[in-house]
Amino acid sequence: MEWFGDPDEVFSENKKSQSGVRPQACILCRKGASPSGKGGSNTGDLTERLMEELNCETVFTLPVLGGISESVVVTWIIMAVLVIASIILTRNLRVENPGKVQIALEAAIGWAQDFFEGIIGKENRKYVPYLITVILYLAAANTIAPLCGFKPPTKDLNVTAGLAIMSMFVIEFSGIRKNGLKHWVKHFAEPVPVVAPIMVLEIVIRPLSLCMRLFGNMLAGFVVLELLKCFVPLIIPIPVSFYFDIFDGLLQAYVFVFLTAIFMTEEME
């Protein structure tokens, strides 16, 4: 079975497996799939497959914007689902005699708001909706592989880099907004002026580390799962998938937003 010959074919394949059953074909190990294969232990073969995995396939091409990759399409799907869900859930809100859904929703949002206000402080609560939005998107994106059968968009370095750049702007903006531009420029030479280059580098290092952490975790989980599926295609991958996709995915979503909030607090103090 040729799993990634034609990008369109790959995507339609993913679509077909929406019911949660992922295709049985093993990506990293095509033993038996290609009659001319020299077995799975060749580094060259592994390199080729990993390279194909790292490239994001172009699903279709727009006239002006250029190629649209698979991760963008999956992101659109997540966006649509989240927007529709939020519209449906907030449609019939009542002050008196609220329904069960509204009570659950209020509890969840209240918990999230309290949690983030605990980190970044009550006076900076206007940043909380951004953080909740990012954590919702990341939680959906990281766990979409076992739930819907799509490839997780956070496995693509460009997606995590985009999120990290957004975090970078929010972190610096919050500092400038709170303490003024003058204080922001001055804080680079804060303890002693000698550390100024390191403090300037920190602007880039923080989002780089956020981006690499998320990308590396998701890709590591993906690669380990694919390698495991080569050797034991039955039953064993299920608990491992629970750990790598669901537990680790939710944990990384939490860590990403948590670290963004911590950096913002640091910048705002």
Binding site: L50, L54, S209, M212, R213, F215, G216, L219, F258, I262
Partner: peptide
Amino acid sequence: ILGCALAEATAIYGFIIGLLIIL
């Protein structure tokens, strides 16, 4: 959780370097 995430980052960097070496 914060400390674990920061400590884990080194392992992730190692994984990425390993991947880059292979690729």
